[in-house]
Write a protein that binds this DNA or RNA. Structure first.
Lengths: 186, 186
DNA sequence: ACTACTTATTCAACGGATTGCGCAGCAACT
DNA sequence: AGTTGCTGCGCAATCCGTTGAATAAGTAGT
């Protein structure tokens, strides 16, 4: 229900093409909401039909033509209306965690392998978020406050995850050392 | 793609009805994956068609009849197969965070109101997770290891969130004190 | 020369998820 | 007497999301 609103938030600052938005969804806003380009183009179409955005057609040579979208007054109204009413709590759907919950069926080795893969990803994200945040610190603390707070959310999230991963590793190590209930000889 | 696997994980330990599962999705597993009863009944139907689960029909008096589902060997095989292949990283879709990112359009007061509401929810969850975890500590550290680790994930997550909320509060307070760029007199 | 990537938009098919509704009876509270 | 809430199952419509593909021309690397 609120891909549209994420798009409207982005269009607030600047006019952008579907392609531009897709890139931002892969970076900044992707921290918080993600979407593929197909979804974005579709939603832009709908938003245009409802005249929440309008676009101008830009012919280009060398590159394909593009449509630059901007938010309309109706769009801004809709966004403000949405901001006012409480958001539904996000639904959680974490396949990796389902695996952990069913961990009895796996061996420690394969769990650890996947844990490390996920940890790499998180560490990578942590780095990008931190470098983005430090850039903001230097130039502007007041303007871009909300970008900064969004980044902080991402940073704390990754850190908590990595801390949890350490706990998992030491728990599994302990368990290996004095192995469990499964009797080898009756 | 893996509501089915979450269900299979749950059915591993015990035979359960759709209703039972729905309750667990509202509590324990809900930490990690959530689903409504409609979805669950539908998925149980499909799993049954593919003979990954089977059920026995239990007539009851006073209460409506129920179907008790249990996992089959095929189901267990499918689950193990799924556990082996890497999980896709979870896609993030947090409406409240979209609001924060678009925070320039709101006033501090309404942001703080919603922040507090969300914080209440998180604190509540933190309490339930912590009390569940402490129960596990007493009785069994080795058995139920994965339930424990799942709970730890939830606990660390809530704590990180609440810590972030404190940061937001103090940032907004500072901003109130020396208000921003918007000139009142030209 | 060939391959791969980037810019840019769009369509079609399918499957997953949400919303809303319906049935049914019992228990407990007001 | 009436409302609410719990146990229990299910259908249908619609919407949202994912996957896969097509088109088209430029640029950069092996």
């Amino acid at each position: 229900m609120s891909l549209r609103h994420a798009i409207l938030v982005l269009l607030q600052d600047q006019e952008a093409s579907g392609y531009d938005l897709a890139r931002e969804f892969a970076n900044s806003i992707g921290l918080v909401w993600n979407a593929t380009h197909q979804q974005i183009y579709l939603e832009l179409g709908k938003l245009n039909d409802q005249s929440m955005v309008k676009y101008r057609h830009i012919p280009q040579d060398g590159k394909p033509d593009k449509k630059l979208y901007r938010i309309t007054d109706e769009g801004r109204d809709e966004l403000i209306r949405w901001l006012r009413k409480p958001a539904a709590p996000p639904r959680i759907r974490d396949a990796f965690m389902v695996k952990i919950a069913g961990g009895d069926l796996s061996d420690s080795a394969s769990i650890l392998r996947e844990l490390d893969d996920q940890a790499d990803l998180r560490r990578e994200r942590l780095n990008t978020f931190e470098s983005l945040a430090s850039k903001l610190d230097d130039t502007s603390q007041d303007r871009d406050l909300f970008t900064y707070l969004t980044l902080r959310r991402g940073i704390l999230d990754q850190q908590a995850w990595l801390h949890w991963a350490d706990e998992v590793r030491s728990a599994l190590k302990k368990r290996e050392e004095r192995p469990v209930s499964v009797p080898t000889s009756v």
